[in-house]
């Protein structure tokens, strides 16, 4: 178990890993995530399950090199093992037939978005997907998203591919021309915040999937708490998906940076040790 059977570079610093995990492959649903740990003194980090192959007993993960832990996972080669892998975690996406779905994926958010739109499409919804990134090089999973959407729009901040502009510009255009029944936004915290503000203006129910900091992922540590309405919720067991219009995004963004100083020190030390080797 946990053997990497296929590794592929999707973009600069972003990798797709196919990992042997037959039990998770069988039980995971759209919206679920897993927790992975690399090395005996490794950190537990949450990662989205993008896809699974029941015949091969594998799951697909997409990982971006950010801190020490994600760099360590990305450094593993085909045939090597992730030390620990546990899941599926979190509540699956509430899939139902609502009509037209506007799916907004930003950057790495394309990965969690893929299983979600697949499921919505299978349930008979019309799916319009907007994939946005800063630049052409950071657009991932284009073909897969396009293949599972009725309409597929690309936006880049610098105009190197698709339409130029922020994701909200593309959203406004779609909303202006047709009735959207539900919006889903997955991506960087700031992006999700502005997606939520955009749909709120138009009264479109919106769901976001939060990438909070976690340790155990089973409801024990409370690191992933987020304010939804007037309540504190735990992303790992109550989420990761929540009503975007009720989330305190400013608090969420601050909490995402909760260990930034410590993480930077760890990363510096890690890079130094890599150079020494």
């Amino acid at each position: 178990m946990n053997k990497i059977v296929k590794k592929e570079k999707l973009a600069e610093r972003i990798y797709r890993l196919e990992v042997e995990a037959p039990l998770i492959a069988a039980s995971r649903k759209a919206g679920n995530f897993i927790i992975a740990r690399t090395g005996k003194l490794g950190e537990r980090i949450p990662l989205t399950v993008v896809d699974s192959d029941l015949d091969k007993g594998t799951i697909t993960l997409v990982v971006q090199e950010m801190g020490v832990s994600s760099k360590k996972i990305c450094a593993l080669n085909e045939g090597e093992y992730i030390t620990d892998l546990v899941g599926p975690l979190g509540r699956p996406t509430d899939i139902k037939k609502v009509g037209t779905i506007l799916a907004c994926a930003g950057g790495l958010g394309a990965a969690p978005m893929l299983p979600i739109i697949k499921a919505f499409k299978e349930a008979g919804n019309r799916v319009i997907t907007i994939l946005a990134a800063r630049s052409k090089d950071l657009l991932i999973l284009k073909e897969e998203l396009a293949a599972n959407s009725d309409e597929f729009i690309i936006m880049t901040d610098d105009g190197t591919e698709g339409k130029k502009g922020l994701i909200t510009v593309g959203m406004e255009e779609v909303i202006a021309r047709e009735k959207i029944d539900e919006c889903i936004a997955v991506g960087p915290g700031v992006m999700m915040k502005f997606c939520a503000l955009t749909t709120k203006k138009h009264n479109i129910p919106t769901m976001v999937s939060l990438n909070a900091i976690m340790v155990d992922g089973t409801g024990m540590c409370g690191a992933c708490r987020v304010t939804v309405g007037d309540e504190t919720k735990f992303t790992c067991v109550d989420g990761p998906e929540f009503d975007a219009h009720k989330i305190d995004f400013d608090e969420f963004l601050l909490r995402l940076g909760g260990y930034k100083d410590q993480e930077n020190v760890l990363l510096e030390n890690f890079e130094k040790s890599c150079k020494l080797k």
Binding site: M220, G222, V226, T227, T232, E251, L254, R255, G257
Partner: peptide, 17 residues
């Protein structure tokens, strides 16, 4: 499971865990 908090202002700022 879930750790209890006091539901007082500022409880979700970084540094409270």
């Amino acid at each position: 499971g879930l750790p209890r908090f006091m539901n007082i202002p500022g409880e979700n700022v970084n540094g409270v865990l």
